[in-house]
Write a protein that binds this DNA or RNA. Structure first.
Length: 701
DNA sequence: GCCCGATCACAAAT
DNA sequence: CATTTGTGATCGGG
């Protein structure tokens, strides 16, 4: 059994793998999903760690607006809340079950390194925002500078700022670590999403940016928001086997695979008289006739032979033994390990690919053969180095589950929502004999049992068709400060004080892009038995940063009643409470990376109309199974929309970063303020947190 | 409505 | 500075 308290040093040194794949893949690692140490060591000495989600404990992410908070209407008898929920109930085969809010199962494996250097670069105690903004506890209104937010995208000049100073030190540019990699990737995607948002508002064919990924990559490269520039054979510090990417540029900025386009990365060793290149990494993504059927053998085609000239002619010639092909040939002779990234179609988002870092391979043999198009091409047989955690094979296995070619081991129930969600949610247990969680009613959305009244009237928009970004006549877009909160494929662009979605009285159809959080779960989820934290939640699909996962469904509880309940000692483990203390964290991009007056809310504090307490004990959705972590991969975002002419607050869960399949989803439960802030011993329901992360507060709840 | 191919506009390293 | 590398978005046809 895993030592629960603190980090098991032997394990850290032992470089165990990363992902929690235990139930399915016994060889897989038991190590953590987030903030882990690079699998093969290589953490450079002398660099201070960087903690994107740490903050002074008093920092609050939530703010309740007092002026809107006077509302405590008498409870209504009828449960006819705004959501006429389909109240399908599900009775577990065995009504005894674990609690979801148990202790985190994994020691995190974070490096325990010294912090607190004063060099002006990265520092865990320093605000992530870097030089400019120091993020302290904010008072309402103080940070809300009145800035141009009229959606005039042309006023934003992309990538020409000279003011930005990267907080990444020269040494950190050369050699990364997990936190740096996360920081770089988070900024890359935040820039990319913002560019998409800006471009969505523009008319088509007006010198628009068609490749936001390339533009974001260019900004990250030129503004030095990147790491691992040192070219190296073997592992890249901070990049873990099983990490997923959605753009070639992402692998570029973290140093996993340097070329922005070419499939073979190679280098020439200094001082090597032969000047022969060595292969470092390859990307297999379907452009050539690779054989990718096996999970640990890859038949990789050499590069070249296809001349895609500008005159629309595709000439096919023989490949030459030069550049990448020569490098692979030399690496075969040398026997050095080559990083392999496998790309495949991402079912969840049309027209896009997902890349997974599959670890190290060795080139076993090479030959030439005539390709289908006529030219001779080089072929290389690469064999996966044994003892590495599963990565690509996980995707293959999930594919088989989905296609029905193999069945999910440990399956208890194919769909615990009984059809309430559009996509089924499996219940699986490969750990013990528990047959399921305790009885609860599956409720796909939030249920207000009493009437809430807001001082501000809630009016819907008048868009007959789906609301379009850039339509400044749409009142729902106006409420969002003129900015459409989501990209075209439903990804949240930035954390905001409050996201306003279209509501029931808006004439726009259900597929309006401004209804992301109200249309239910969109990824294939499973509730699974953890080793020691009861049940947990994870996804079969890769999840992109910013993607909506689910809302916190349950029954809204009256604030006064909730307190009484606590006094009686009846502890509700399934509570979401906006009044808790939540550590602030940075998710939007660093100010200055794009030339905007106020790029995003540089202080990512929520501002919500009234405190919201939700209990999912008796009725709830998949979110009641999400466990706590101090290093989470999911965050909550308040979302407001209208029903019966009143605005109702909802809690949406979104991915902090890209989440590989079968990685447990976790969010930060926050800390209850009653019983004394930070007081661990209060009469309270605080629980000792054993996540082992260097960011761990020690308790939660 | 969906899948496939054609087309096009781009970035980094050397 | 030109060349070499292929991707990711979009659009039209089957």
């Amino acid at each position: 059994m895993e030592p629960l308290n603190g980090i098991d040093k032997s394990r850290v040194l032992d470089v165990k793998p990363l992902r929690t794949l235990t139930p399915v893949f016994p060889t897989g690692a038991q190590a953590p999903n987030f903030g882990c140490m690079p699998p093969f060591g290589h953490t450079p000495n002398g660099f201070s760690p960087f903690f994107p989600f740490s903050a002074p404990p008093q920092a609050q992410a939530t703010q309740h607006s007092p002026d809107l908070n006077h509302v405590n209407p008498p409870a209504m008898q009828t449960p006819a809340g705004p959501m006429p929920a389909p109240l399908r109930s599900y009775r577990a085969p065995n009504p005894s079950g674990g609690l979801p809010h148990d202790f985190p199962e994994e020691s995190n494996g974070d490096r325990e390194s010294s912090m607190g250097d004063e060099d002006g670069y990265f520092d865990g105690h320093k605000d992530v925002a870097g030089s400019s903004s120091s993020r302290k506890k904010t008072t309402r209104g103080s940070y809300r500078k009145k800035v141009r937010r009229n959606g005039d995208a042309d006023a934003v000049v992309l990538g020409s700022s000279v003011n930005f100073v990267s907080v990444i030190s020269p040494a950190q540019l050369e050699d990364g670590n997990r936190d740096l990699v996360n920081y770089v990737l988070m900024n890359f995607d935040a820039i990319r999403r913002r560019i998409c948002q800006i471009e969505d508002t523009k008319e088509k064919n007006t010198d628009s940016i068609k490749r936001a990924d390339l533009k974001a990559g260019n900004i990250a490269m030129t503004k030095k928001v990147r790491t691992n520039m040192r070219r190296r054979i073997g592992p890249v510090p901070g990049v873990e086997i099983g990490d997923i990417f959605f753009f070639r540029m992402e692998m570029c900025v973290v140093g996993l695979h340097a070329p922005s386009m070419a499939g073979i990365d190679y280098m020439t060793l200094r001082g090597d008289l032969e000047k022969d290149p060595i292969a470092l990494s390859i990307v297999s993504s379907g452009g050539y006739e690779d054989d990718t059927d096996s999970s640990d053998v890859l038949i990789y085609s050499g590069q070249g032979g296809i001349t895609n000239s500008k005159d629309k002619q595709v000439a096919v010639t023989d490949q030459k033994l030069e550049r990448g092909n020569l490098a692979l040939e030399r690496s075969l002779q040398r026997g050095n390990e080559v990083r392999v990234i496998r790309g495949l179609k991402d079912d969840t988002t049309p027209n896009s690919k997902v890349y997974i870092y599959d670890g190290l391979y060795k080139i076993q043999e090479s030959w030439t053969e005539r390709g289908k198009s006529g030219g001779n091409m080089f072929k290389y047989k690469l064999v996966r180095v044994s003892g590495q955690p599963d990565a690509f094979s996980v995707l293959q296995t999930i594919r088989k589950w989905k296609d029905g070619f193999s069945s999910r081991a440990g399956l208890v129930l194919p769909d615990l929502t009984s059809g309430s969600e559009r996509i089924p949610v499996s219940l699986v247990n490969e750990v013990d004999n528990e047959k399921g969680p305790a009885y609860f009613t599956y409720l796909p959305s939030l249920k207000y049992s009493k009437s809430f009244t807001l001082t501000q009237p809630s009016l819907g928009c008048k868009c007959r068709n789906a609301c379009l970004p850039g339509d400044m006549n749409c009142s729902c877009i106006q409420k969002n400060e003129g900015e459409f909160p989501y990209t075209g494929n439903g990804i949240l662009v930035s954390r905001k004080q409050l996201v306003y979605e279209c509501g029931a009285s808006c004439p726009c159809p259900p597929n309006c892009k401004n209804r992301v959080s109200q249309s239910g779960v969109k990824v294939r989820l499973e509730v699974f038995r953890t080793k020691d934290r009861g049940w947990g939640l994870r996804s079969w699909d890769p999840i992109r940063a910013g993607a909506f996962i689910c809302e916190y469904a349950g029954e809204v509880i009256d604030e006064a009643k909730f307190k009484n309940k606590g006094d009686e000692g009846e502890i509700d483990e399934y509570v979401f409470d906006t009044r808790r203390n939540f550590d602030s964290f940075k998710w939007n991009y660093e100010p200055g990376l794009l030339d905007e007056e106020s790029p995003n809310d540089s202080v990512e504090a929520y501002s919500i109309p009234y405190p919201l307490i939700i209990s999912a004990k008796n009725a709830g959705n998949v979110s009641r199974f999400i466990n706590h972590s101090c290093s989470p991969n999911v965050f909550w975002q308040p979302v407001l929309y209208e029903q019966n002419n009143q605005s109702f607050l909802h809690i949406g869960f979104f991915a902090i970063r890209h989440i590989p399949p079968l990685t447990e989803l976790t969010y930060d439960y926050g800390v209850s303020m009653s019983g004394g802030a930070g007081n661990n011993n209060g009469p309270h329901r605080k629980k000792k947190c054993l996540c082992g992360s260097s960011k761990c507060r020690g308790y939660f709840g």
